[in-house]
Nucleic acid binder design. Structure first.
Length: 807
RNA sequence: GCCCGGGUGGCGAAACGGCAGACGCAAGGGACUUAAAAUCCCUUGGGGGCAACCCCAUCUGGGUUCGAAUCCCAGCCCGGGCACCA
């Protein structure tokens, strides 16, 4: 075998990568002992929706970044659990299935096979023994169980609610499928609204806790801010406007200080008092208006600013502050789902009311004078003003007037302080096929009855034709054999709920299931959950900053309150990574700019590709995908490969390379911890460049490099580790430590400035006292012409870095 | 309209308020080669100068500071999210 002119083998990922993937499987390298682990660390990444196109580079970017974190934690000595699964139910899969005319039950398993293969090839430290899919009855059985827990807790309610309806598709559309009021699939068809019975989760009852807890979480600020805004807390008051029909109109306002300027009241078209307050002679106008509103879809109704429409009811209400009677109008700029569904209109101090009052010739009474005394143009909506035309409150500042006016009205039972949230209750009904059936029954005798937990799962029945139709009722309603069942309570005839639940319910609890996938008789095993949860680090995209992250926090809180969990926040640390775009735009099938990683991984290997994705730009910011420059990462690996092949025995002499090693360990450690992967790679490259210029390189200088590189290029690092004579896995080598003394430079270059401009540099021993350094700087020859005989007014000294003379 | 990001060489980018452009790509020159590829060495923000050096330069305009890519104010552009929320 051995020749005389033996060259070390060149690095070939096509050999190295399959070899190590096989070994990891054989040796169960990525499997953690869930019961025995001493230092459990739960590293979570967002499970993908297994689309027909396969994983794209955006998904892979997210996974690689999370995987690097997991591997880094493992090297620090943690027992890292890094699971993956598939978010395979939902309207995406269903719509795609309809389009290609293949049943999702056939399509999805096919896609999952492809995804698994792609994920495997990326070289993630995934523990495949805990894989899950939301479409698996052993999973959605417990999704249904979660629904029942909420129902038991009184947090699930069925009520009528408007939905978007496309008359052409003959189906309910999600808000995101409505584009400027038109159906996304039929751009010429206007979407209308229809009222259907839907199941809701009462997440609004948790609004305050969801908001307050945010301050305690270690989350990316952008994500936290998004949640704060989504919850949208407003402090204000609910005020009472008496009406001739006995029942008063309650309005919510954040500006009770402007109540003296309320010149009319507006009801949402769906407001319960509309009917009773409509005077006979206005009946036909009102009915015509209500019909008009029903023709408009929910989205374009809210897209607004412009043309206000409305109609007068013919009735009047009493302004609780002035005692005057003011007209009651109906207008669709008032939304039933926010506040009380009615407002007091203060046209002088609200943009929308001003527009409406102008359009319909209603009176505009200013009650706030701008603080600067200049009577500004109306509407004046700022807080910095004083009250006028407001009786005893004239002269008060707006902010103090809020409390004073509210208290005054409260004494007469005409108002009270109130907090309002923008957060809506979570509609979880979908009149669709591809989801877990909602586990409820309707019995003629007993009414609404939950499916007993022992009868779960309610299996989603095979259905040849799952296309939604004009009925607005789920396709499951066509399967009579399935929905007709005896009532579990009385045995009489009952029918199943035929709606399925929202995909966001599937994903709201998947992280709770991963550690417990081995238990088929319970959703969440108490012992294993206590050990592994809450999640230590969750890394994912900010596109889920509100919905998914909010829903999973809510579900976790509810399960905690019911005694199923002993923590109420699911994710200790959340980091939002950036988005990978292509040519400046989000990747999407419709844009045709989706890039899949397969070709690159095939050509360069996973390790080069992983490094490349992470080097593309800051992980937390994302960037535009392009493929120029992959070669740079391959060159880097080749250089490390050559260093590994040429190491010498013996201990390293203290020299420049040793210092650089310790600096590199320090820098890379900090960078990885902060998810600054691009600069971590750059620092390793610098170190490699130093080693290459250093002549003989002892193994002790290369081994820590291999370890630091291993989270980024795991297969490559394993092979190098083996070539360095080690058995086992590099992931048990331990994260390298650094010595601050050895990292310290003993010579520094001090920049000498005159008035902030660099005029010279002096080399000096590090750590010089200020006086010595300043003297040294002043004597520098290149400074002479700038200083000459001028007086130095001030000297600024930054240790080991700079001296600045101000003249 | 509102809320988040972001604007730095030919390109991706770096830079505790302290030498702007680390690291990498591309490009140009050279070495090796019959040749090409690969590899190695050198150059590479703009302008001036034989040169040591000097001037200009981080979207624009102001400000704070001994000193600003970085902090503050105003504006422009790009990306993402929300959208009549009273």
């Amino acid at each position: 075998m051995s020749g005389t002119n033996e060259h070390p083998p060149a690095y070939d990922p096509a050999i190295v990568e399959p070899k190590w993937r096989r070994r990891w499987e054989e040796r169960r390298t990525n499997t953690v002992d869930l019961t025995g682990a001493a230092r459990p660390f739960y590293n979570l990444m967002m499970f993908p929706y297994p689309s027909a196109e396969g994983l794209h580079v955006g998904n892979v970017f997210a996974f690689i970044g999370s995987d690097i974190h997991g591997r880094y934690r493992r090297l620090q000595g943690y027992d890292v659990f890094e699971p993956i699964g598939f978010d395979a139910f939902g309207i995406h899969s269903e719509n795609y299935a309809l389009k290609v005319d293949t049943h999702p039950a056939k399509l999805i398993p096919r896609n999952i096979v492809r995804f698994r293969e792609q994920l495997r090839r990326v070289g993630l430290m995934v523990n495949w023994e805990h894989e899950l899919s939301t479409t698996d009855p052993t999973y959605y059985r417990w999704t249904q169980w979660v629904f029942l827990q909420l129902y038991r807790a009184g947090l699930a309610e069925k009520k009528a609610a408007p939905v978007n309806w496309c008359p052409e598709c003959k189906t309910v559309l999600a808000n995101e499928q409505v584009i400027n009021g038109f159906c996304e699939r039929h751009p010429e068809i206007a979407v209308i609204q229809r009222v259907l019975e839907q199941w809701f989760f009462m997440i609004t009852r948790y609004a305050e806790r969801l908001l307050d807890n945010l301050a305690t979480l270690d989350w990316s600020d952008t994500t936290r801010t998004a949640q704060v805004n989504w919850i949208g807390r407003s402090d204000g008051a609910e005020l009472v406007f008496e009406t001739p029909v006995g029942e008063p109109i309650a309005v919510f306002t954040t500006r009770p200080d402007t109540v003296f300027g309320a010149t009319y009241v507006v009801l949402a078209p769906e407001h319960p008092l509309v009917e009773r307050l409509t005077a006979a002679e206005h009946r036909s106008d009102v009915n015509a208006y209500l019909r008009h509103v029903a023709q408009t879809d929910l989205v374009s109704r809210k897209v607004g600013g412009n043309d206000k429409t409305g109609v007068f009811t013919g009735s009047y209400a009493r302004n609780p502050a002035t005692g005057e009677t003011i007209p009651i109008w109906i207008a669709d700029y008032v939304l039933m789902e926010y506040g009380t569904g009615a407002i007091m209109a203060v046209p002088a101090h609200d943009e929308r009311d001003f527009e409406f009052a102008t359009a319909f010739g209603l009176p505009i009474v200013p009650v706030i004078e701008p603080a600067d005394g200049v009577s500004g143009t109306l509407p004046f909506t700022d807080w910095d003003g004083t009250l006028v035309n407001s009786g005893a409150f004239d002269g008060l500042g707006c902010r103090e007037a809020v409390g004073a006016v509210t208290r005054w009205l409260e004494e007469r039972a005409l108002g009270a302080g109130r907090v309002q949230y923008r957060l809506h209750d979570w509609c979880i009904s979908r009149q669709r096929y591809w989801g877990p059936p909602i586990p409820m029954l309707y019995c003629d005798a007993c009414g609404t009855v939950p499916v007993p937990e022992a009868d779960l799962p309610v299996i989603l029945p095979p259905l040849e034709n799952f296309r939604p139709d004009e009925s607005g009722i789920s396709p499951l309603a066509r399967n009579e054999a399935w929905y007709r069942v005896p009532c579990p309570t009385c045995g009489g005839p009952a029918r199943r709920e035929t709606d399925v639940s929202d995909t966001f319910l599937d994903s709201a609890w998947y992280f709770l299931r991963y550690p417990s996938t081995g238990f088929d008789d319970r959703p969440i095993d108490a012992t294993v959950t206590k050990k592994w949860l809450p999640v230590n680090t969750y890394i994912g995209g900010n596109e889920h900053a509100v919905l998914h992250l909010m829903y999973s926090r809510f579900i976790t809180m509810v399960l905690h309150d019911l005694g199923h969990l002993d923590f109420e926040e699911p994710y200790r640390t959340f980091r939002a990574h950036g988005m990978i775009v292509k040519d400046g735009a989000k990747m999407s099938k419709s844009r045709g700019n989706v890039v899949v990683p397969d070709e690159y991984i095939g050509q360069w290997g996973a390790d080069t590709f992983r490094l490349y994705m992470m080097f593309l730009g800051p992980y937390l910011e994302g960037g535009d995908f392009r493929d120029e420059g992959i070669i740079g990462q391959r060159r880097f690996l080749d250089k490390v490969w050559d260093l590994v092949g040429a190491v010498t025995a013996g201990a390293p002499e203290p020299n420049e390379a040793v210092r650089k090693l310790h600096q590199t360990v320090r820098g890379v450690t900090d960078d990885i911890a902060a998810l600054h992967y691009n600069t971590a790679i750059a620092k390793m490259m610098e170190y490699v460049n130093v080693l290459r210029g250093a002549g003989e390189v002892p193994a002790a200088l290369v081994e820590p490099l291999v370890t630091m590189l291993s989270p980024f290029a795991p297969h490559f690092a394993e092979e190098c580790w083996e070539r360095l004579g080690h058995e086992g896995t590099v992931f048990e080598s331990g994260w390298p430590t650094f010595d601050a003394d050895l990292a310290r430079e003993d010579q520094v270059e001090i920049v000498v400035q005159v008035n902030g401009k660099v005029r010279g540099r002096v080399r000096a021993v590090a750590g010089l006292p200020e006086e010595t350094a300043v003297t040294l700087a002043r004597e520098d020859a290149s400074l002479r012409k700038f200083l000459n005989d001028k007086t130095i007014r001030k000297t600024v000294y930054v240790a080991d870095r700079l001296v600045n003379f101000v003249i």
